[in-house]
Amino acid sequence: MVKLMQQSWWKLLAIFLLCYTVVGGLLFAVPRLNILNETIRNLYYHVPMWFGMIILFTVSLVYSILYLYRGKLSDDLMAVETANVGLLLGVLGLLTGMIWANYTWGSPWNGDPKQNMSAIALLIYFAYSILRASIPDPTKRARISAVYNIFAFFSMIPLLFVVPRLTDSLHPSNGGNNGFVVYDLDNQMRLVFYPAVMGFTLLGLWISSLRIRLRLIFDPNYNHSSL
């Protein structure tokens, strides 16, 4: 794993994809829509934050399961650092979403289900950090927080399937708001959107890999473990 983290090809790929996102996201044609106008380009920068957050939280979940399975302290390190960067992306997604919502929906917080859902996901992972901070012993901390991570992750299932449908969403493809469905189907936008998701996720993994390698060397709790 350390070998893969040290390799640069995927970091160069991240840089390439993100440069493409900046250039293509600002210059390529986008659908002309009311209310949104040019802000529709936020889709390339705001939404990938959420995708990146969910992907990083999923990686964190996988390593928590692995920790309980084989008890390697380095798996715990992977779990916590991916969760930390997931939180970073999540907070950025929330802030950018509030800015965008303020301009297009009229206020930063509209009780929109997707917004609420992301806020809950953030609360869960902040609770995860607080739980970790309250346990001094490293192996005990790893075990207990892994259990919480797994339990909390699966308790978010209703968020994904139901709560968004409890009320009408202002986000696309949830009914209401016809104008917004258009960009869901726009192929031109997908050409930038998917690379953007990949680029931001890889950037997140890169940052977490830096912290993991740093702690493997300098953190006395981890520097005897190997990946």
Partner: peptide, 28 residues
């Protein structure tokens, strides 16, 4: 102009990340 500005900022951040990367490799 906007594209150029964002790309320069992005390049700066990437440059910094790679410097951390190289320092880490030395320690590793």
């Amino acid at each position: 102009v906007v594209v150029a500005v964002i790309l320069v900022i992005f390049a700066g951040i990437i440059f910094y990340l790679f410097r951390i990367e190289n320092q880490l490799k030395k320690y590793e």
